[in-house]
Design a protein around this nucleic acid. Structure first.
Length: 463
RNA sequence: GAGGCUGUAGCUCAGUAGGUUAGAGCAUCAGAUUGUGGUUCUGAGGGUCGAGGGUUCGAAACCCUUCAGCCUCCCCA
């Protein structure tokens, strides 16, 4: 059979893993520096934990796991099983008889589930980061995979806008450290609610938001058409246009929003929370933070955000990639699992997309693509023992080293060394062994010198 | 869920109007060369032309079906 992997999944070859680890390490260090604690949850959750949390579209994209042992059911159960199968074949529907587990869809809901389950043990506010794969039964395309990694940082149990500012700082620091130019777009669900109020359709916030989110893509004329299709009057559209076309610095925009939103209490609250979060952010990053831009057209798909929402896009002109990170405030996330009144705020890094962008822009550090630094040639016989002794000594000195395991032809060993890209190749042969020496070949320059074993180890240990 | 493109060697691809035994580069292996890699030279192995059916004297090519991959919209990270 021809080997293959499931659609939308990828193998990560050694060089790729190194580059990915560079991203993970960068993020992990920052998360730790900001006082976040690591968390891991299972790859699979009970299906009921996930369903209904991501909207109708989200439910469709959950990877469900078929129950084991269906064939072992007794006759009564099988009748039910048949009925449920029939159901599933005619409509979007699942039954615990057929499937009761599913692959993790994101990291936020499992986190909420964790917090509720461990509420008595946690010191609130609880700050956690989590870097694990998630799965979506989506149709793969550029920048979209069925298995991809998320790196999330969330704070639960505090409504302070300092948390928003901290998370913005994490975004800022992470992308600055990675050398990636970004714009962090900020908005508030309350501002969007306010918009729907002032244009006269408080119940159509979702429709209005979805339409306005497309501003970047389809322009205002496109948005107008969309709004009309969703039943917004011309006066309402004009009101929205006046708000969405506001330009200027963040402070200027917020001032203008304040005037526009004057008749909406919730809208005013939105302005206030963005202003406060940005003030904190400015204090944490005086004059050196990444660009943060207030953007009233920004929407986020997930249903549970209630306050500040953010999205990160790469601002490099050559890069065509959707958002590489996003997040927001959810006032009552754990309420879904029976723990009321616990507010959370979090951000997520889409590291697969970040990888693609870094790769495209050539922003990975050069020295990442190295493994072991030194290879010992295997000349066989007595020399094999000699090589192993050297191997142990080099490793004891902290030099990443490997020995060619077979006494293969010299040419073959050298070709292998070349392909692997070792910095040095050591030749422990008869003459060297007899003299207590070893030949050290710099594989970059081709230069080769014989020297005492101790000197060779010192040289290589110093790099 | 809607639409578009592509499937030929391990990889990237060529293959003229439908006409001998389906090619190239890279990779692999062997040799030149059992103590000197990257460069070079010689040679070798490797193909159900995605699958099934049809048209034809003849199909990798044309038609139908199907599968897979990629891309766009929707939505998302």
């Amino acid at each position: 059979m021809k080997p293959s992997i499931p659609q939308g999944t990828r193998d990560f070859s050694p060089e790729v893993v190194r580059k990915r680890q560079y991203i993970f390490d960068t993020l992990r260090n920052i998360f730790e520096l900001y006082g976040f604690q690591p968390l891991e949850t299972p790859a699979m959750e009970n299906l009921v934990t996930l369903t209904g949390k991501y909207g109708e579209e989200g439910d469709r994209l959950i990877f469900k796991i078929l129950n084991n042992g269906l064939h072992e059911k007794n006759e009564n159960d099988k009748a039910k099983l048949n009925a449920e199968w029939a159901n599933m074949l005619t409509k979007p529907y699942t039954s615990p008889v057929v499937t009761e587990r599913a692959l993790r869809y994101d990291l936020t809901i499992p986190f909420a589930r964790y917090v509720v389950m461990h509420q008595n043990d946690l010191a609130l506010p609880f700050r956690r980061y989590q870097m694990q794969p998630v799965w979506r039964a989506d149709r793969p395309q550029k920048g979209r995979y069925r298995e991809f990694w998320q790196c999330d940082a969330d704070v639960v149990g505090s409504t302070s806008l300092i948390n928003e500012a901290e998370l913005l700082s994490i975004y800022s620091r992470a992308f600055q450290q990675l050398g990636l130019p970004v714009v962090i777009k900020v908005n508030s669900r309350k501002l969007l609610q306010g918009l729907s109020v002032i244009c006269g359709y408080p119940e159509k916030m979702m429709d209005i938001t979805i339409a306005m989110d497309k501003l970047d893509k389809i322009g205002w004329t496109g948005v107008t058409a969309e709004l009309q299709a969703r039943g917004i009057s011309d006066e309402g559209i004009t009101t929205l246009e006046n708000a969405i076309m506001i330009t200027g610095s963040n402070a200027e925009k917020l001032e203008s929003f304040e005037r526009v939103m004057a008749s909406s209490e919730v809208g005013m609250a939105g302005v206030a929370e963005i202003r406060k979060a940005l003030n904190y952010y400015e204090t944490l990053n005086p004059g050196k933070g990444a660009e943060v831009a207030v953007d009233i057209s920004l929407a986020r798909g997930l249903n549970y955000y209630t306050g500040v929402i953010v999205e990160v896009v790469c601002s490099h002109p050559d890069v065509k990639m959707g958002s590489i990170g996003g997040g927001g405030r959810y006032d009552d996330l754990t309420g879904l699992f029976g723990l009321k009144g616990l507010s959370g705020v979090g951000v997520s890094f889409g590291i697969d997309r970040i990888y693609d962008v870094l790769d495209e822009l050539g922003l990975f550090p050069q020295q990442l693509v190295q493994g072991a630094n030194v290879m010992l040639v295997n000349f066989g016989g007595e020399n094999e023992q000699f090589a192993l002794t050297l191997l142990a000594q080099l490793r004891a000195a902290g030099v990443a080293t490997e020995v060619y395991p077979d006494a293969a032809k010299f040419d073959k060993q050298m070709k292998y060394a070349n392909k692997r890209g070792f910095a040095f190749v050591l030749l422990p042969g008869d003459e060297e062994r007899a003299a207590g020496e070893v030949s050290v070949k710099n594989f970059v320059t081709g230069e080769q010198k014989r020297m005492a074993v101790a000197d060779a180890i010192r040289l290589l240990a110093e790099g």
